[in-house]
């Protein structure tokens, strides 16, 4: 009886796991983009924008610092 129960549990577990795996497969993600590496292009582009933006704000900061020094 106990063995039967274990076997049932095993089969149920397998079914559950396969369901989970199936459900995961069904949800589309950008896996191909990740596998062929093109996602790094997006990361590079976004980082470039971020760096440019920060350099711009930093220059602005510097410029105002200079004005503040001149005022004093």
């Amino acid at each position: 009886m106990y063995k039967l129960f274990l076997r049932f549990l095993f089969i149920a577990g397998c079914l559950f796991l396969s369901c989970v795996a199936f459900a995961q497969d069904k949800v589309e993600m950008a896996d191909s983009m990740r596998s062929n590496g093109k996602i790094y292009v997006v990361v590079a582009v976004c980082l470039t924008i971020l760096i440019g933006l920060f350099i711009y704000v930093f220059m602005l900061d510097k410029k105002i610092s200079r004005f503040e020094k001149n005022k004093e």
């Binding site: 995961q24 949800v27 589309e28 993600m29 996602i39 990361v43 976004c46 900061d61």
Partner: peptide, 29 residues
């Protein structure tokens, strides 16, 4: 803290695009 802001946002972009996220229907990536 300005440098920290840059570091955190760079991490946001790198980690945000490359790290694993839960696979949810409709939402996807």
């Amino acid at each position: 803290w300005k440098i920290l802001s840059f570091v955190l946002l760079a991490y946001t972009i790198i980690g945000g695009f490359l790290l694993d996220v839960p696979r949810l229907p409709i939402l996807n990536e």
